[in-house]
Design a protein around this nucleic acid. Structure first.
Lengths: 173, 173
DNA sequence: ACTAATTATCTTAGTGGATAAGATATATAC
DNA sequence: GTATATATCTTATCCACTAAGATAATTAGT
């Protein structure tokens, strides 16, 4: 009955609260993305691609498909729309002319970043309330979470159960 | 030229790293959700609704529309699909018979939770490596982030610029 | 060098899920 | 007791996605 180090009841409750907070934030993040996409005038998927392009630099169409979980055919549509909107550019690889790199048009960065700026400013202000040591802990927490999620996702994708090999929906036609 | 307390260069870099980590995690979270939805056999939106139902308990169709950013018409479709799949149940409010509460079918909880379990287990294990004080800091961090994002989102939705009042896409027909 | 196999993207047909507008049903206000 | 507001559902229409295969370029085998 006696707890070992700290009261385990409180600790379990703390973890549950943290989990709840993470889940709520995650859900809100999705909604935020949808709202920004709406404001920028592109679909959620399109904005997701733009974010990846921003993070990873210019990437090929195929890599974008991997990153988003869409088929390459869908990516063609995504890039078509965004290219027409002047947000990205197709650049053929000269050494392997099958490959098509997608790159953000520099001017578009501001056009999109504009909508993230208020969040970034608010968040930066929040974070100024933390010490360096605390920020380091937060970074460790986020990095660890990312890696853990990545590992579990890989298992989830490769685990058997359900036919497999099918990108998204149950077969129909 | 002399920094006040800690080296500001390092601090700025730390914040940038943290921002990068948050963005990557957020993007991965979206992908994770898509993958789970695929496994459960429902669409991303459907799973998003299930998550909200799990968080908020049983809610009305209209509230679900607010929470997800979908129109009420779309929610009707979401609930139709999930009800047919045996995941949720419609329950009319007896005191206000216009309202329809959506509730998760208890048996379905396990059917969905099954796919989140590996992540939850892995994350819990990670978190055991933190002290109570650290977990409290992490909770504060997440809660603060949630509230900040909520505020910015509200501004983003109500700010002028672009006609407004339009749930998602630019008008077309 | 020529053919086959592989890789990367694009094209086409078909479908599901979204919006927008309005219908239906119930509740509240004057 | 009629009008207005609220909550969900219905219908028509449209867009973006998947699946399958076409096209184009690279690599491997003989």
């Amino acid at each position: 009955m006696k707890p070992a180090l700290s009261r385990p009841k409180a600790r379990a409750a703390l973890m549950q609260e943290l989990e709840y907070a993470v889940r709520k934030s995650s859900a809100l993040g999705v909604l935020f993305g949808q709202t920004v996409a709406n404001r920028v005038g592109v679909s959620s998927s399109d904005l997701e691609c733009l974010d990846f392009l921003n993070i990873e630099g210019r990437v090929t169409a195929g890599r974008l498909a991997e990153l988003t979980g869409l088929t390459t055919g869908a990516i063609t549509g995504v890039v078509d729309r965004m290219e027409k909107a002047g947000l990205v550019r197709r650049e053929r690889d000269e050494s392997d002319r099958r490959k098509v790199f997608i790159a953000i048009v520099p001017e578009a960065l501001g056009r999109i970043g504009r909508f993230y700026e208020p969040l970034q400013k608010a968040v930066t202000k929040d974070w100024e309330g933390y010490t360096d040591a605390e920020l380091k802990l937060l970074l460790r927490f986020m990095t660890q979470g990312y890696n853990t999620m990545l590992g579990v996702l890989e298992d989830l994708k490769t685990s058997p159960e359900k036919p497999q090999g099918r990108p998204r929906k149950p077969a129909r036609g």
